[in-house]
């Protein structure tokens, strides 16, 4: 039987959830036995090559490109898991949600203390257009599982992934989802 395919992706966040994932240490050797990666920053495959079994995403949705890629993930993944605070609630980036986008951009590019001469709000077509707010992933596409944490620990990610691969319901012990 072919190994299950896994894809991972990141949107607006700090990449910390992926770093936490790498923190599984020597279990990475088991991982290679268990799964095969498709699109993921871990192997630097940029586009989906085929439908995959499990998609793991971190980060919130703050611009048009995030929306596009998140929809791609939904289209290609049988199961989609949102991990970490940013994907689930918008996280730290969503602190800008209380300030109108125009004010944010003006402060950053026109009126901020480090602006020299006249600033300009970037409008190059290659730069994704920002959304009015940062959205959690589940408001944009259907999400099947949520793994909270900032970031979720390597043990949490490992336990969830292994359970899914074994076709079991993900049941995490309290220690893995308590954060105080």
């Amino acid at each position: 039987m072919a190994k299950p395919l896994v894809a991972t992706g990141f949107f607006t966040g700090c990449f910390g959830c992926h770093m936490s994932f790498l923190d599984i240490d020597e279990r990475i050797i088991d991982l290679v036995e268990l799964i095969e990666f498709d699109k993921s920053p871990i192997n630097d495959i940029k586009e989906f090559t085929r439908p995959v079994d499990i998609g793991i995403i971190e980060g919130g949705v703050s611009n048009e490109e995030n929306v596009e890629f998140l929809r791609e993930f939904r289209k290609h993944c049988k199961i989609l898991i949102a991990i970490g605070s940013c994907a689930i609630t918008g996280g730290v980036p969503s602190m800008r949600n209380t300030v109108p986008l125009k004010e944010c951009l003006e402060e950053a590019y026109l009126n901020g203390p480090t602006i020299q001469n006249d600033g300009i709000i970037p409008n190059d077509p290659d730069i994704p257009t920002m959304l009015d707010k940062v959205y959690p992933c589940h408001e944009v596409v259907k999400i099947d599982y949520f793994l909270p944490g900032c970031p979720p620990s390597a043990d949490t990610l490992w336990a969830a992934l292994v359970a899914l691969l074994q076709g079991k319901e993900v049941a995490l012990p309290y220690e893995l989802v308590k954060y105080d």
């Binding site: 949705v61 048009e64 986008l101 970037p122 409008n123 257009t129 920002m130 959304l131 009015d132």
Partner: peptide, 20 residues
């Protein structure tokens, strides 16, 4: 989520059109 509404302000500020 309403993509058009979410993009409206960003498009107005930068003068760009939505791609998606």
């Amino acid at each position: 989520f309403d993509l058009k509404a979410a993009l409206a302000e960003g498009c107005a500020i930068t003068g760009k059109q939505p791609v998606l």
